[in-house]
C-alpha cells in the first residue's frame, strides 16, 4: 500500500514540479530508468520468492542505476555511446522479461 502511495506521490511530484532536465543528464536518464525498472521487478520477484531483503534492494537499486549511467557515460567518452546505451537497454530488457516471467509463474502458476 505504501509502495502504491509512493508511486502516486512520485507521479504527482513530477507533474507539479515539472523539473527541467539538465542537458548533461539527458542521455543518461532513460538508461537509469531502465535500470530502476529492472531493480523494481527484481525486487518483486525476490519478494514472491521469499528472498526479499530491504538492504539488498536499496543497494542493488542504487548500484544498478549508477552502473547503467556510468556505462553510458564511459561509452560517450570513448565514442561508442549510442551502441553502449543500446547494449545496456537490451540487457536490462532481457532481465526485465525474465523477472516478469518469474513473477507471472509465482502469481498465476502458468
Amino acid at each position: 500500500m505504501i509502495a502504491v502511495i509512493g508511486l502516486i506521490i512520485g507521479v504527482v511530484l513530477g507533474l507539479v514540479l515539472n523539473p527541467s532536465m539538465p542537458v548533461a543528464l539527458q542521455p543518461y536518464l532513460p538508461i537509469m530508468i531502465m535500470a530502476a525498472l529492472d531493480a523494481l521487478f527484481g525486487a518483486a520477484r525476490a519478494y514472491l520468492g521469499h528472498t526479499f531483503s530491504d538492504k539488498v534492494f536499496v543497494v542493488s537499486f542504487l548500484s544498478n542505476v549508477a552502473i547503467a549511467g556510468l556505462m553510458v557515460w564511459m561509452g560517450d567518452q570513448i565514442g561508442v555511446g549510442a551502441q553502449l546505451s543500446t547494449a545496456v537497454v537490451v540487457v536490462l530488457g532481457i532481465r526485465i522479461f525474465t523477472n516478469m516471467a518469474a513473477i507471472r509463474r509465482a502469481l498465476l502458476h502458468v
Binding site: 500500500m1 505504501i2 509502495a3 502511495i5 509512493g6 508511486l7 506521490i9 512520485g10 507521479v11 511530484l13 513530477g14 507533474l15 515539472n18 523539473p19 527541467s20 532536465m21 539527458q26 536518464l29 532513460p30 537509469m32 530508468i33 530502476a36 525498472l37 531493480a39 523494481l40 525486487a43 526479499f52 530491504d54 534492494f57 536499496v58 537499486f61
Partner: peptide, 26 residues
C-alpha cells in the same frame, strides 16, 4: 501491515516514477 521495508520500497518507487515522469515530459 506496512513495515519499515515497505517505506524504503515506497521511496524508491517514488524516485523511479518521478524520473519516468520527468523523462516523459521532457
Amino acid at each position: 501491515h506496512p513495515g519499515i521495508g515497505q517505506v524504503l520500497v515506497a521511496v524508491i518507487v517514488c524516485l523511479s516514477s518521478f524520473a519516468v515522469v520527468t523523462q516523459v515530459r521532457s
